[in-house]
Design a protein around this nucleic acid. Structure first.
Lengths: 203, 203
DNA sequence: TCTACTTTTGACCACCTGGTTAAACTATTT
DNA sequence: AAATAGTTTAACCAGGTGGTCAAAAGTAGA
């Protein structure tokens, strides 16, 4: 049945993402994924022939979750400050709803950097666009001059890092889960606030 | 001999850190570590009984590389702005000289969060000190009010994240290795600059 | 040289892993 | 109801893994 097909397939993909995220590619066991999906191990190989193929399927699904929104914001014709605000909001909200995404992607960074970079390229991010916008607004005195590389890195760092380092931050600063969620929610405004203050001319 | 003892032991530790960092705990093979150290696999188990023990030895070594400097800065009696500058400088320089540290620590975050948090606690970081300093300086009008959690998170995020996401950043922004090193060097001043601007009152 | 010791090695093993296979089950079509 | 095609399973396998062990090689003192 096409219906139960997609059900089983989706169930597998969901369990796979879960296990791959928690354990990493090498730590993940096909058996564990099968158990989590409530199916036989051989069925995994029936739908996704190998562990690699299964991982790749999960990976692509994850990328589609991450890129489209961010790219459309980055390339929309709005001022830099507005982009900063929108990206902070969108990025953090997305990570809040899929807290394991950051860890999953990071695992893949150290496992297979090339492929990830290729996917980034194919995703259609044109860094020149944002670079020229920043220098343009700087020339017009709207923002303080800054290299696009640093601004974007600052923005992404502050959005993503807390999700990667979550256990450490919670432990270090003595937050429980609720406090951490509150903390993350606050960052939606703290991050743009920080960056925009640092970029506003005329001190 | 105590001398060749320590040589072999150190060689093992070095190779272990290398392999563990590249492959993660699960991906690392005892055989590969032995090969890299130029010794027999059984010798690994002679010095460090199990894979876990070996990892733990590497882990402690890494922690000792990271913490002491940062902690002494955090708890020294200097203004917040100065702390921001010194930590950026020290942290980035340390990561520049040991670029794989960040990845190693992160791997451990997702493998065994509890132990890492415990080590952080035992390292003697007293978050209350920095918290009270920030609220004190804010009350005196030296800095804009901000939650210590956010300031510290911003600082650490911007310092550490580029080392974790290095391949992606290089690919996305079209940097070669030399350009990336230059980029990292610049961040020693960009990060404190960004934060201090955002914290300076009286706009 | 002999002895007691630590260090190093090759051979080995029990176990686990990803992957296969052939058979059983289900549903759809004729 | 028979044939066909797609789905699910239990049993199995070859290869790789961490870990062991007994013996060899090296070392130092008497």
């Amino acid at each position: 049945m096409t219906d139960s097909d997609k059900n089983t397939e989706k169930t597998i993909l969901l369990s796979a993402r879960k296990i791959f995220t928690i354990k990493g590619f090498d730590g993940a066991r096909m058996q564990e994924i099968a158990d989590d999906a409530g199916i036989n191990k051989a069925l995994l190989h029936y739908y996704y022939r190998t562990k690699d193929k299964l991982f790749e399927a999960v990976f692509k699904e994850v990328l589609n979750l991450i890129f489209p929104k961010i790219i459309s914001i980055l390339q929309s014709p709005i001022p830099v400050f507005e982009k900063i605000e929108k990206i902070s909001l969108t990025y953090i909200e997305m990570l809040k709803q899929n807290p394991d995404l950051a860890i999953f992607v990071f695992h893949e960074i150290s496992r297979n950097p090339r492929r990830l970079v290729e996917n980034f390229r194919n995703a259609g991010i044109d860094f020149e666009i944002i670079r020229s916008q920043i220098s343009l607004e700087a020339a017009r005195g709207i923002i303080v001059p800054i290299k696009a590389e640093h601004l974007i890195t600052n923005l992404i760092s502050m959005c993503v890092f807390p999700f990667i380092a979550k256990p450490v931050l919670k432990g270090m600063m003595g937050m429980d889960e609720e406090a951490f969620q509150q903390f993350i929610e606050e960052r939606k405004s703290v991050i743009p606030h920080t960056l925009i203050l640092s970029l506003t001319p005329d001190k």
